[in-house]
Simulated assay, not measured.
Amino acid sequence: MRAGDGPSLAMLGARTLGNALGSGRNSLNALRLVFAAAVIVSHSWWLGGYGPESSLYGIKLGTAGVMGFFAISGYLITVSAERSNTVLEYAAARLTRIYPALAVAALIVAFVAAPVGALLTHGTYDPRGALAFLGAALALSIGVMDTPAIGTSLWGNHDRFDWNGPLWTLTWEGLCYVIVATIVFLLRRIPESRRGTATAIFLLLAASTGAVFGKLLAGGFGPNRTEFVLPLLAIFMAGSLLATQRHRVRVGAAPSLLAALAVWGALATGYGTALAPLPFAYLVLSIGSIGSMSAIGSRYDISYGIYIYGWPIQQLLAAAHTASHVPVLGFAALALVAAWPLGFLSCVAVEQPSQRIRRALMGRLAIRAATTTPGPSTTARDAGAMTPRA
């Protein structure tokens, strides 16, 4: 609690988002794993060529999974920013969380999966296309451009161009990181007694802007990237707003039910993009506050790896004509089974070592600052110490 904000619900003994999600016994990692699996299952209809996928109020299973990812990220990234002493500390945490695994996945797609795909489809492999794909992935620019094709390595597939479709969301997640950091760090210039309220106001404005313009420009959670961007930004900012008020927002069965009804009402009336982001983010975080699945992903969080490897695996399955021999859910199951070990390897061989290196380097910088700066110093804190890795 910040000075001048008054007593929080957490101090009064109520179960709030802050104490439920900060206790270490929560199910956010389990939820992210479910969301990653939902994205893979949803993509099976398109990549396997099984026909149109069913949706509810225009929202497909994969769309809901990405929305859930953004709600959780909005909360965790804001907590990370608030706990970071400097912009450098925050940026290092964010870059080492997503970038090393992304770089390895992009290299594997460009120089392993694409040549194999060309063999399976009898297409051509273009090294220049592979380099263009790698550059676009590393620049986080796939969200604002068409994914560069790697020759005709996917020529026989239903999707003949895109080797890793989900990477487009990382462009916009990265933008959200910048927005949150800008708000949190700039507002540290104002008195601490008013900082929490000001931060919440700015984040509420950001969430409202994305929600309203998402409704005006897109009209709903559309099937293409352009229509989907603003609602995603609104959901991220809604999660961020809840993070700033986490010690005041109560969690429980009754408010969760009300949030679910609010989401349903917003979607049923056609105002989902304008009205659903905040109750949806609350509902996701409230479910995540349940501790019954806290063991899942507590040591090995493989959700990100599954997310970035699922699509390439499905493209290879399609190139091998697997879809002609199994139903759509069988296709999805094979993709999930193949993605699990890659997600695990990404976690233990890339993501966790990157985090350890980041902590070691930031610790050394903190020690150096302590020995060169007079007066008391603050040791760099690990932004993810009390919450799942963001």
Rank of each mutant, 00 (worst) to 15 (best):
N26G: 10
A206D: 06
V34D: 04
L233N: 03
L204H: 01
P388R: 06
A335W: 07
A20M: 00
L342T: 05
L31S: 06
L9E: 13
G165D: 09
A91M: 12
Y90S: 05
W172D: 08
A101Y: 00
E227K: 11
M362V: 11
A259Y: 00
H325T: 11
A81K: 09
G222F: 05
V39T: 09
R15W: 05
G272I: 07
S324R: 12
R225G: 14
E89V: 04
T371A: 14
W168G: 04
C347I: 09
V251M: 06
R15E: 14
W340L: 15
L88C: 01
Y177C: 07
G51V: 01
A110W: 01
W264I: 07
P327Y: 11
I306W: 02
G151A: 09
I142Q: 15
P374L: 09
D159W: 10
A93P: 02
Q314T: 03
T182R: 04
G310C: 05
G24Y: 08
S42E: 01
T379K: 04
I150F: 11
G58H: 07
I108F: 15
G65R: 02
H43Y: 06
A118V: 01
S55L: 05
S324H: 13
W168L: 02
A37W: 00
L131P: 00
R32E: 02
R97Y: 10
Y177L: 08
T199C: 12
A106P: 02
G265R: 11
I290D: 14
A130W: 01
A318Y: 03
Y271M: 10
T199K: 10
A181V: 03
A243I: 06
T322W: 04
A130C: 01
L230Y: 05
I296D: 02
T78E: 10
Y50E: 09
V249T: 15
I108K: 01
S8K: 06
P353N: 08
R246P: 03
Q355I: 10
S42K: 02
A118Q: 07
S294H: 12
V326P: 03
T16M: 04
L88G: 13
Y271E: 08
A211S: 15
L205S: 13
L175G: 08
D301C: 06
G143K: 01
W155L: 14
P7E: 12
S354G: 13
V337D: 10
L95N: 05
T244R: 12
A320N: 12
F111N: 06
L336C: 07
L205E: 05
A92V: 15
S324M: 08
Y282R: 03
E227D: 13
L154K: 04
A64K: 06
G210E: 04
T78P: 00
G252Y: 13
I302G: 00
V116N: 07
R97E: 14
S377C: 14
E227P: 00
T197A: 15
A370M: 11
L33V: 00
L131K: 04
L140S: 12
N19A: 05
I308S: 01
R225Y: 12
V249W: 02
P127L: 12
M362P: 00
F221P: 03
A101M: 15
G13V: 07
P115M: 03
G156R: 11
Y99R: 03
G51T: 05
V284A: 06
P100R: 10
